[in-house]
Design a protein around this nucleic acid. Sequence first.
DNA 1: TAATATCCTACCAAATAGGTATGTATTGAT
DNA 2: ATCAATACATACCTATTTGGTAGGATATTA
Lengths: 131, 131
Amino acid sequence: MKFSTRAEYGLKAMINLAHTFPGQKSIKELSEEESISLKYLERLMGTLKKNGLVLSTKGQSGGYVLSKKPSQMTAGEVIEALDGPIAPMKCTSSNCAIAKSCNSSTIWTELEHQIKKTLYGYTLKKLTDKK
Amino acid sequence: MKFSTRAEYGLKAMINLAHTFPGQKSIKELSEEESISLKYLERLMGTLKKNGLVLSTKGQSGGYVLSKKPSQMTAGEVIEALDGPIAPMKCTSSNCAIAKSCNSSTIWTELEHQIKKTLYGYTLKKLTDKK
DNA sequence: TAATATCCTACCAAATAGGTATGTATTGAT
DNA sequence: ATCAATACATACCTATTTGGTAGGATATTA
């Protein structure tokens, strides 16, 4: 059971952007500061943008900004944007037909709830204050 | 973020064994009742045995039994036996050098704690009673 | 117009998941 | 003693995911 490094890298980059908020920062700066491959981070920022979590300006002196205040953006949003829906077991996401009579389903459902509660409980602001 | 079907299948099989406890049951029966490929389940039971969660008797009319009472065996044990250590991010398992100054590490650590709390909070007995 | 960004798409290697195939060893029943 | 049923072991296979790289197109500004 693991989250991908996508989620790790993305969260790090978003925390970095939370620090500089409401200023913007280029991928180049982000990748150097967080030691993430520039080309890979480029793709991650692309999907974060597609999901509306960051805004971008192109061209020279362009870069990325958070689309919301750090106090209003949660780690859960970032992670689901990059890794897809949080659903620890297929049966919790795909409406299993036998869920009602299945002994296992309760545990996966509760687990999903706990994970979401934790991840959506952390705003980027909370994470930047942590240090 | 997903657990493997290994964990799902294994947990189902163990819940089944909890129902028949302290009786034993063959892989053939288990695989038919839970609709899991016999050969695949064979392997899963093998690793469960290696981890001491089940006992087996070979030969005709052989099979598997839980090594502990259902009230003393948790879903967490089963899942970690099959899927490896519960550690949502590499940095929480491999003693990252910069963990203390890392803004992200707290969230992964808390998440790991919450997941373990949930999974080790469910005994097989609790799951069999659920229906 | 040159430099610096984002953006877009295709490719790639390694690992993992999920499963099959084949055979061996052990035991109970006939 | 033999046969059938079972656990046990290992090698193989295919598809998907992960974590990247490569090369360029597009937009903006100095």
